[in-house]
Design a protein around this nucleic acid. Sequence first.
DNA 1: GGGAAGCACCGCCAAA
DNA 2: CATTTGGCGGTGCTTC
Length: 347
Amino acid sequence: MAFGASVFWGKRHCHPCTSVVSAMSLHIVFFVFPGFALLDLSGPLCAFELANYDSSGAYRLTVVSETGGPVVSSCGVTILSEPFGHDACAHEACDTLIVSGGPPHLMRGASEKTLALLRTGAAQARRAASVCTGAFLLAEAGLLDGKRATTHWRCAAQLQALRPAIRVDADRIFIQDGKIWTSAGVTAGVDLALALIENDFDADVSRSVARNMVVYHRRQGGQSQFSALLDLDPPTDRIRQALTFARERLHEDLPVERLAEAARLSPRQFARVFFADTGQTPARAIDRLRAEAARSRVEDGLEPLEAIARAVGFGDPERMRQSFIRHFGQPPQALRRAGREWRKTRD
DNA sequence: GGGAAGCACCGCCAAA
DNA sequence: CATTTGGCGGTGCTTC
Protein backbone atom coordinates (compact mmCIF):
# COMPACT_ATOMS: atom_id res chain seq x y z
CA MET A 1 0.00 0.00 0.00
CA ALA A 2 1.79 3.05 -1.22
CA PHE A 3 -0.63 5.51 0.26
CA GLY A 4 -1.23 4.32 3.76
CA ALA A 5 -3.56 6.80 5.33
CA SER A 6 -2.31 6.16 8.83
CA VAL A 7 1.22 6.84 7.64
CA PHE A 8 0.25 9.92 5.73
CA TRP A 9 -1.89 11.56 8.36
CA GLY A 10 -0.61 9.86 11.41
CA LYS A 11 -2.80 8.18 13.97
CA ARG A 12 -3.89 10.44 16.74
CA HIS A 13 -5.02 9.99 20.25
CA CYS A 14 -8.10 7.95 20.84
CA HIS A 15 -10.72 9.94 22.59
CA PRO A 16 -12.42 8.73 25.72
CA CYS A 17 -15.97 7.71 25.15
CA THR A 18 -18.56 10.40 25.48
CA SER A 19 -22.19 9.99 26.36
CA VAL A 20 -23.02 9.42 22.73
CA VAL A 21 -20.11 7.38 21.53
CA SER A 22 -19.87 4.09 23.29
CA ALA A 23 -17.76 1.12 22.43
CA MET A 24 -19.95 0.19 19.47
CA SER A 25 -19.54 1.99 16.21
CA LEU A 26 -21.93 4.60 14.90
CA HIS A 27 -23.55 3.56 11.67
CA ILE A 28 -23.70 6.38 9.16
CA VAL A 29 -26.05 5.56 6.30
CA PHE A 30 -25.90 7.60 3.11
CA PHE A 31 -28.96 7.56 0.88
CA VAL A 32 -28.41 8.09 -2.85
CA PHE A 33 -30.63 7.87 -5.93
CA PRO A 34 -30.01 7.85 -9.68
CA GLY A 35 -28.59 11.23 -10.66
CA PHE A 36 -27.35 12.15 -7.18
CA ALA A 37 -24.47 14.59 -6.86
CA LEU A 38 -21.30 12.65 -6.17
CA LEU A 39 -19.69 15.33 -4.00
CA ASP A 40 -22.74 15.41 -1.71
CA LEU A 41 -21.86 11.83 -0.90
CA SER A 42 -18.08 11.78 -1.14
CA GLY A 43 -17.45 15.00 0.83
CA PRO A 44 -19.13 13.82 4.02
CA LEU A 45 -17.84 10.26 3.46
CA CYS A 46 -14.30 11.59 3.39
CA ALA A 47 -14.86 13.55 6.61
CA PHE A 48 -16.18 10.49 8.46
CA GLU A 49 -13.40 8.35 7.04
CA LEU A 50 -10.79 10.75 8.38
CA ALA A 51 -12.62 10.96 11.68
CA ASN A 52 -12.12 7.22 11.99
CA TYR A 53 -8.37 7.80 12.19
CA ASP A 54 -8.91 10.06 15.16
CA SER A 55 -11.41 7.86 16.91
CA SER A 56 -10.24 4.32 16.27
CA GLY A 57 -12.98 3.53 13.82
CA ALA A 58 -16.00 5.00 15.51
CA TYR A 59 -17.95 5.15 12.28
CA ARG A 60 -19.27 2.46 10.03
CA LEU A 61 -20.21 3.86 6.63
CA THR A 62 -22.80 2.44 4.27
CA VAL A 63 -24.26 3.76 1.04
CA VAL A 64 -27.84 2.74 0.37
CA SER A 65 -30.40 3.31 -2.37
CA GLU A 66 -34.03 2.35 -2.80
CA THR A 67 -33.29 -0.97 -4.48
CA GLY A 68 -29.58 -1.40 -3.86
CA GLY A 69 -27.00 -2.17 -6.55
CA PRO A 70 -25.26 0.25 -8.90
CA VAL A 71 -26.43 3.86 -8.83
CA VAL A 72 -25.27 6.32 -11.47
CA SER A 73 -24.42 9.77 -10.17
CA SER A 74 -25.08 13.02 -12.03
CA CYS A 75 -21.54 13.06 -13.41
CA GLY A 76 -21.83 9.52 -14.76
CA VAL A 77 -19.71 7.74 -12.16
CA THR A 78 -21.41 4.67 -10.68
CA ILE A 79 -21.53 3.80 -6.99
CA LEU A 80 -22.42 0.42 -5.56
CA SER A 81 -25.12 0.59 -2.91
CA GLU A 82 -26.95 -1.65 -0.48
CA PRO A 83 -30.73 -1.85 -0.49
CA PHE A 84 -32.18 0.67 1.95
CA GLY A 85 -33.98 -0.89 4.85
CA HIS A 86 -32.27 -4.25 4.72
CA ASP A 87 -28.95 -4.44 6.44
CA ALA A 88 -28.58 -0.73 6.69
CA CYS A 89 -31.38 0.31 8.94
CA ALA A 90 -32.88 -2.92 10.14
CA HIS A 91 -30.20 -5.29 11.32
CA GLU A 92 -27.80 -2.80 12.69
CA ALA A 93 -29.24 0.38 14.08
CA CYS A 94 -28.78 3.31 11.76
CA ASP A 95 -27.33 6.11 13.82
CA THR A 96 -27.33 8.86 11.23
CA LEU A 97 -29.14 8.97 7.92
CA ILE A 98 -27.68 11.39 5.38
CA VAL A 99 -29.54 12.15 2.17
CA SER A 100 -27.59 13.37 -0.85
CA GLY A 101 -28.85 16.02 -3.21
CA GLY A 102 -28.85 16.25 -6.96
CA PRO A 103 -29.97 18.46 -9.82
CA PRO A 104 -33.13 20.34 -8.83
CA HIS A 105 -35.33 18.83 -11.54
CA LEU A 106 -34.68 15.36 -10.12
CA MET A 107 -35.65 16.33 -6.61
CA ARG A 108 -39.39 16.36 -7.07
CA GLY A 109 -41.78 13.46 -7.25
CA ALA A 110 -39.78 10.86 -5.38
CA SER A 111 -41.48 7.47 -5.26
CA GLU A 112 -43.78 6.73 -2.37
CA LYS A 113 -41.54 3.81 -1.49
CA THR A 114 -38.52 6.10 -1.17
CA LEU A 115 -40.43 8.55 0.98
CA ALA A 116 -41.70 5.77 3.21
CA LEU A 117 -38.16 4.41 3.60
CA LEU A 118 -36.90 7.85 4.50
CA ARG A 119 -39.65 8.29 7.08
CA THR A 120 -38.93 5.01 8.84
CA GLY A 121 -35.20 5.48 8.45
CA ALA A 122 -35.33 8.94 9.98
CA ALA A 123 -37.65 7.82 12.74
CA GLN A 124 -35.33 5.01 13.78
CA ALA A 125 -32.12 6.95 13.42
CA ARG A 126 -30.70 9.20 16.10
CA ARG A 127 -30.17 11.91 13.49
CA ALA A 128 -31.26 12.56 9.93
CA ALA A 129 -29.51 14.98 7.63
CA SER A 130 -29.53 16.28 4.08
CA VAL A 131 -26.88 17.78 1.86
CA CYS A 132 -27.74 20.49 -0.64
CA THR A 133 -31.00 19.69 -2.47
CA GLY A 134 -31.34 16.48 -0.48
CA ALA A 135 -33.52 18.67 1.71
CA PHE A 136 -36.25 18.29 -0.91
CA LEU A 137 -36.49 14.58 -0.21
CA LEU A 138 -36.74 15.15 3.54
CA ALA A 139 -39.29 17.86 2.83
CA GLU A 140 -41.45 15.65 0.64
CA ALA A 141 -41.30 12.97 3.29
CA GLY A 142 -42.75 15.59 5.64
CA LEU A 143 -39.72 15.46 7.90
CA LEU A 144 -38.99 19.18 7.77
CA ASP A 145 -42.46 20.54 8.49
CA GLY A 146 -42.39 23.02 11.33
CA LYS A 147 -38.61 22.98 11.38
CA ARG A 148 -35.88 25.40 10.37
CA ALA A 149 -33.92 24.12 7.41
CA THR A 150 -31.57 25.19 4.65
CA THR A 151 -30.64 24.02 1.18
CA HIS A 152 -28.72 25.31 -1.83
CA TRP A 153 -29.42 29.03 -1.99
CA ARG A 154 -30.66 28.80 -5.57
CA CYS A 155 -33.37 26.38 -4.50
CA ALA A 156 -34.40 28.00 -1.23
CA ALA A 157 -37.43 29.78 -2.59
CA GLN A 158 -38.57 26.64 -4.39
CA LEU A 159 -38.30 24.62 -1.20
CA GLN A 160 -40.23 27.25 0.69
CA ALA A 161 -42.97 27.22 -1.94
CA LEU A 162 -43.13 23.44 -1.94
CA ARG A 163 -43.57 23.23 1.83
CA PRO A 164 -44.76 26.44 3.46
CA ALA A 165 -44.53 24.78 6.87
CA ILE A 166 -40.72 24.76 6.69
CA ARG A 167 -38.81 27.78 7.93
CA VAL A 168 -36.25 28.03 5.15
CA ASP A 169 -33.13 30.05 5.87
CA ALA A 170 -30.95 30.30 2.78
CA ASP A 171 -28.16 32.16 4.47
CA ARG A 172 -26.76 29.37 6.58
CA ILE A 173 -24.12 26.74 5.92
CA PHE A 174 -26.06 24.19 7.90
CA ILE A 175 -28.91 24.13 10.39
CA GLN A 176 -29.73 21.73 13.18
CA ASP A 177 -33.30 21.62 14.39
CA GLY A 178 -33.86 18.77 16.79
CA LYS A 179 -32.67 15.56 15.21
CA ILE A 180 -32.86 16.97 11.70
CA TRP A 181 -29.80 18.59 10.14
CA THR A 182 -29.82 20.25 6.74
CA SER A 183 -26.97 21.84 4.85
CA ALA A 184 -26.44 24.32 2.04
CA GLY A 185 -25.12 23.58 -1.41
CA VAL A 186 -22.61 20.88 -2.32
CA THR A 187 -19.46 21.48 -0.27
CA ALA A 188 -21.51 22.53 2.73
CA GLY A 189 -21.97 18.79 3.17
CA VAL A 190 -18.42 18.74 4.47
CA ASP A 191 -19.24 21.43 7.02
CA LEU A 192 -22.28 19.42 8.01
CA ALA A 193 -20.22 16.27 8.48
CA LEU A 194 -17.69 18.18 10.58
CA ALA A 195 -20.50 19.44 12.77
CA LEU A 196 -21.91 15.93 13.19
CA ILE A 197 -18.48 14.64 14.12
CA GLU A 198 -18.03 17.45 16.60
CA ASN A 199 -21.46 16.57 17.98
CA ASP A 200 -20.28 12.99 18.54
CA PHE A 201 -16.83 13.78 19.91
CA ASP A 202 -15.49 17.24 20.46
CA ALA A 203 -13.98 20.18 18.63
CA ASP A 204 -10.49 18.65 18.72
CA VAL A 205 -11.54 15.75 16.54
CA SER A 206 -13.51 17.84 14.07
CA ARG A 207 -10.71 20.39 13.88
CA SER A 208 -8.22 17.65 13.14
CA VAL A 209 -10.47 16.30 10.37
CA ALA A 210 -10.88 19.78 8.92
CA ARG A 211 -7.12 20.28 8.86
CA ASN A 212 -6.60 16.98 7.11
CA MET A 213 -9.22 17.90 4.53
CA VAL A 214 -7.68 21.36 4.19
CA VAL A 215 -11.00 23.09 4.80
CA TYR A 216 -12.13 25.56 7.41
CA HIS A 217 -13.03 23.98 10.70
CA ARG A 218 -15.90 26.37 11.25
CA ARG A 219 -16.65 28.22 8.09
CA GLN A 220 -17.99 31.58 9.07
CA GLY A 221 -20.88 33.49 7.69
CA GLY A 222 -23.71 32.39 5.49
CA GLN A 223 -23.65 30.75 2.12
CA SER A 224 -24.48 33.94 0.26
CA GLN A 225 -20.91 35.09 0.61
CA PHE A 226 -19.98 32.23 -1.68
CA SER A 227 -22.83 32.70 -4.07
CA ALA A 228 -21.81 36.32 -4.50
CA LEU A 229 -25.47 36.87 -4.98
CA LEU A 230 -25.34 40.48 -4.09
CA ASP A 231 -22.64 41.19 -6.66
CA LEU A 232 -23.89 39.20 -9.59
CA ASP A 233 -26.98 40.42 -11.30
CA PRO A 234 -30.11 38.93 -9.87
CA PRO A 235 -32.48 37.62 -12.50
CA THR A 236 -34.96 40.45 -12.44
CA ASP A 237 -34.22 44.06 -13.33
CA ARG A 238 -36.23 45.46 -10.51
CA ILE A 239 -34.34 43.65 -7.80
CA ARG A 240 -31.07 44.75 -9.36
CA GLN A 241 -32.31 48.32 -9.39
CA ALA A 242 -33.15 48.11 -5.72
CA LEU A 243 -29.74 46.67 -4.85
CA THR A 244 -27.93 49.33 -6.85
CA PHE A 245 -30.07 51.95 -5.20
CA ALA A 246 -29.15 50.55 -1.80
CA ARG A 247 -25.45 50.28 -2.51
CA GLU A 248 -25.25 53.90 -3.60
CA ARG A 249 -26.71 55.18 -0.36
CA LEU A 250 -25.83 52.60 2.28
CA HIS A 251 -25.24 55.33 4.84
CA GLU A 252 -28.88 56.41 4.66
CA ASP A 253 -31.91 54.76 6.21
CA LEU A 254 -33.03 51.94 3.97
CA PRO A 255 -36.32 50.52 5.17
CA VAL A 256 -37.92 47.85 3.00
CA GLU A 257 -40.55 50.36 1.95
CA ARG A 258 -37.93 52.57 0.36
CA LEU A 259 -36.28 49.70 -1.49
CA ALA A 260 -39.65 48.62 -2.80
CA GLU A 261 -40.16 52.12 -4.11
CA ALA A 262 -36.81 51.98 -5.90
CA ALA A 263 -37.87 48.71 -7.47
CA ARG A 264 -41.29 50.15 -8.31
CA LEU A 265 -43.07 47.33 -6.56
CA SER A 266 -45.37 47.22 -3.59
CA PRO A 267 -43.54 46.33 -0.37
CA ARG A 268 -45.30 43.01 -0.19
CA GLN A 269 -44.51 41.99 -3.73
CA PHE A 270 -40.97 43.32 -3.45
CA ALA A 271 -40.24 41.16 -0.44
CA ARG A 272 -41.66 38.16 -2.26
CA VAL A 273 -39.66 38.67 -5.44
CA PHE A 274 -36.53 39.59 -3.54
CA PHE A 275 -36.56 36.35 -1.61
CA ALA A 276 -37.31 34.33 -4.73
CA ASP A 277 -34.32 35.88 -6.52
CA THR A 278 -31.75 35.98 -3.79
CA GLY A 279 -32.81 33.52 -1.13
CA GLN A 280 -32.58 36.30 1.44
CA THR A 281 -35.03 38.69 2.94
CA PRO A 282 -34.51 42.36 2.04
CA ALA A 283 -33.52 43.75 5.42
CA ARG A 284 -31.05 40.96 6.01
CA ALA A 285 -29.48 41.52 2.61
CA ILE A 286 -29.00 45.21 3.36
CA ASP A 287 -27.44 44.27 6.66
CA ARG A 288 -25.05 42.03 4.78
CA LEU A 289 -24.23 44.72 2.22
CA ARG A 290 -23.28 47.03 5.06
CA ALA A 291 -21.20 44.39 6.79
CA GLU A 292 -19.35 43.61 3.59
CA ALA A 293 -18.76 47.28 2.85
CA ALA A 294 -17.38 47.74 6.33
CA ARG A 295 -15.26 44.63 6.40
CA SER A 296 -12.35 45.67 4.18
CA ARG A 297 -12.17 49.06 5.85
CA VAL A 298 -12.11 47.38 9.25
CA GLU A 299 -9.34 45.07 8.12
CA ASP A 300 -7.33 47.94 6.68
CA GLY A 301 -7.14 49.33 10.18
CA LEU A 302 -6.85 52.95 9.09
CA GLU A 303 -10.14 54.40 10.32
CA PRO A 304 -11.76 54.23 13.73
CA LEU A 305 -14.50 51.59 13.92
CA GLU A 306 -17.04 54.20 14.88
CA ALA A 307 -16.39 56.20 11.70
CA ILE A 308 -16.73 53.09 9.55
CA ALA A 309 -19.95 52.11 11.30
CA ARG A 310 -21.44 55.50 10.50
CA ALA A 311 -20.14 55.58 6.94
CA VAL A 312 -21.79 52.31 5.94
CA GLY A 313 -25.07 53.00 7.70
CA PHE A 314 -24.84 51.00 10.89
CA GLY A 315 -25.16 54.18 12.88
CA ASP A 316 -23.30 53.01 15.92
CA PRO A 317 -20.46 50.53 16.45
CA GLU A 318 -22.57 48.19 18.52
CA ARG A 319 -24.93 47.49 15.66
CA MET A 320 -21.96 46.88 13.40
CA ARG A 321 -20.55 44.47 15.93
CA GLN A 322 -23.79 42.48 16.04
CA SER A 323 -23.92 42.38 12.27
CA PHE A 324 -20.32 41.16 11.98
CA ILE A 325 -20.98 38.35 14.37
CA ARG A 326 -24.09 37.42 12.39
CA HIS A 327 -22.34 37.36 9.04
CA PHE A 328 -18.68 36.61 9.72
CA GLY A 329 -18.87 34.93 13.08
CA GLN A 330 -16.50 37.38 14.72
CA PRO A 331 -16.55 40.98 15.88
CA PRO A 332 -14.80 43.84 14.02
CA GLN A 333 -11.93 43.96 16.49
CA ALA A 334 -11.02 40.36 15.75
CA LEU A 335 -11.01 40.96 12.00
CA ARG A 336 -8.94 44.08 12.44
CA ARG A 337 -6.41 42.11 14.43
CA ALA A 338 -6.39 39.37 11.78
CA GLY A 339 -5.87 41.98 9.07
CA ARG A 340 -2.92 43.40 10.93
CA GLU A 341 -1.36 39.94 11.37
CA TRP A 342 -1.79 39.23 7.72
CA ARG A 343 -0.06 42.41 6.66
CA LYS A 344 2.78 41.70 9.04
CA THR A 345 3.50 38.36 7.37
CA ARG A 346 3.87 40.08 4.02
CA ASP A 347 6.23 42.82 5.10
C1' DG B 1 -30.99 43.63 31.47
C1' DG B 2 -36.14 44.17 31.13
C1' DG B 3 -39.91 46.08 28.81
C1' DA B 4 -42.17 48.97 25.26
C1' DA B 5 -42.22 50.46 20.46
C1' DG B 6 -41.17 49.82 15.84
C1' DC B 7 -40.06 47.17 12.09
C1' DA B 8 -39.60 43.07 9.15
C1' DC B 9 -41.67 39.19 7.75
C1' DC B 10 -45.23 36.11 6.24
C1' DG B 11 -49.69 33.84 5.85
C1' DC B 12 -54.01 34.74 4.10
C1' DC B 13 -57.41 36.53 1.14
C1' DA B 14 -59.22 39.41 -2.35
C1' DA B 15 -58.64 41.78 -6.69
C1' DA B 16 -56.60 42.17 -11.15
C1' DC C 1 -59.68 29.20 -14.46
C1' DA C 2 -54.70 30.10 -13.00
C1' DT C 3 -51.27 33.26 -11.88
C1' DT C 4 -49.66 37.59 -10.20
C1' DT C 5 -50.22 41.39 -7.23
C1' DG C 6 -51.54 44.26 -3.21
C1' DG C 7 -53.25 44.97 1.43
C1' DC C 8 -54.18 43.54 6.13
C1' DG C 9 -53.04 41.82 10.49
C1' DG C 10 -50.57 38.65 13.54
C1' DT C 11 -46.09 37.39 15.24
C1' DG C 12 -41.61 37.58 16.45
C1' DC C 13 -37.33 39.98 16.36
C1' DT C 14 -34.52 44.16 16.93
C1' DT C 15 -33.81 48.46 18.90
C1' DC C 16 -34.07 51.91 22.19
